[in-house]
Design a binder for these strands. Structure first.
Lengths: 267, 267
DNA sequence: CATCTAAAG
DNA sequence: CTTTTGATG
């Protein structure tokens, strides 16, 4: 049994003051992938820099206070890597991966984009390069007899069921036709399975992000943009997959909720 | 009897959330001069934009979030003015004045400066221009048979008794020999009296600003840089002059405390 | 609406 | 240490 969780913390220093550490202490996950850490490791307070019981790989962004991902694991990784071999993006705090025995786990923070701006071009460049990486990653893993799980904030909702107000968002970054088509290619050409959707094929959501504006959280007017995808054999072993909306309910320590997949390796 | 108060609020929107409005409701001042308002009038929440019982003249800075002075008066002014006729500084949110019957009251926020930087040059240019204004202001007032009081954050401590640690600060902005000499000229050539010092000639302080850093406030390690100066006849009518350290003690809503002068016009 | 940053104080 | 901003989300 291996439990993997992904959560965009929207600033780990702010999140730690509001309940992230209590959530982490209570989780049963074996691996936790973080996005939007928004801190250099050196800027972290002691209780975050040295998380008792966890090994951490931090991938901060070159520009301070931006992006930043991490992978926390209870066991020491066999290998860690920052970036995916991209000249443009390896220093941008958007990708890190670790190898555990027979398994690669990656944390991804895809650029959020904004239609009509350079930020959308950047998102599309990232998408193009990253799809190549996903294909290669699976091929290498297959050769080595390992499985792969890629967790993160993809900043794209795949299907109408993945956001509350899909009709109004067809021209907005995060639900553009070309972004949705790209996610389809990630699954089909990449050979990965969206494990939450696989186990909950007919459900609206479950959403994992709600804007801080207005009453989005209270109305559950959210988006399912935090995805855990896994290679086929591993995906079939996924026995549970859910969004922990309640984790950020009592005191909201992020605008995203943790997404968790439970794999039964004896399955 | 007329009571005039000067206080640097260090951001009126933040101060209002922490007790400034309660202080204002309780004050017996007839005129309140504010510095470091740090807000355009349009950005002010309703309870600040329309202060019941007060007339206000707001002089915001051209660059948002910087400087900004105001003069609040219980009676409608006969005349209001922003700036002192300076091409460089009239738009910088550092000076406003109002006329009440027989009396001009001004709110000043002198640049703080920083040795070895352009900000110190700016402070010195301001000082040069402003001294001319003070001399002219008194001359005009004398001709019209009116008195003058100029309140504000001068960002200069005049004498060793005006700051806790004067020896260590002789090379720092705010206690440079040339700044101190300029304040002497303001009083001597300008023909004004520092009313707090006049009534408390032998006291250390009373300080009106304490850095937020360290334990400056608790140790009363402060500076007396918020001065009320008045023309001679009026200054002689000043029967009380004090710093309201306690106003920012319970919940500290600024790093400065209000300075008040009470004038007995029948004196 | 919230997290960061930078400059300013 | 605190308040602003401006960028980002």
């Amino acid at each position: 049994m291996i439990v993997v969780t992904s959560v965009n913390v929207n600033g780990i220093r702010a999140a730690a003051k509001k309940g992230f550490l209590e959530w982490l202490a209570a989780t049963e996950a074996e691996v936790v992938c973080l996005q939007e850490v928004r801190s250099e490791p050196e800027q972290l307070p002691a209780e975050l820099r040295d998380l008792p019981g966890w090994h951490a790989v931090w991938a901060p962004a070159a520009s301070k206070g931006r992006a930043g991902v991490a992978v926390l694991s209870r066991k020491a990784p066999e290998r860690t890597a920052i970036g995916f071999g991209s000249a443009e993006f390896d220093g941008s705090g958007r990708y890190a991966e670790i190898d555990l025995p027979g398994l690669t786990v990656a944390s991804l923070y895809l650029p959020s984009g904004e239609v009509g701006t350079e930020r959308q071009d950047e998102k599309e460049r990232f998408m193009a390069e990253f799809l190549v990486h996903l294909v290669e990653l699976r091929a290498r893993a297959a050769k080595d007899g390992r499985e792969v799980v890629v967790c993160g904030d993809w900043n794209i909702a795949h299907q109408p069921a993945d956001l509350k107000n899909w009709k109004a968002n067809q021209k907005n970054a995060g639900f553009l036709p070309e972004e949705r088509a790209w996610l389809t290619r990630v699954l089909d050409e990449g050979g990965y399975v969206d494990v939450v959707r696989r186990l909950h094929p007919d459900q609206e959501g479950p959403y994992s992000w709600w804007s801080y504006r207005g009453r989005a959280f209270d109305n559950d007017s959210g988006w399912r943009i935090d995805l855990i995808i896994a290679t086929g054999i591993l995906a079939k072993k996924c026995v549970e997959a859910y969004v922990e909306r309640s984790a950020t309910h009592a005191e909201r320590w992020s605008d995203h909720a943790p997404v968790t997949a439970v794999f039964d390796l004896n399955n």
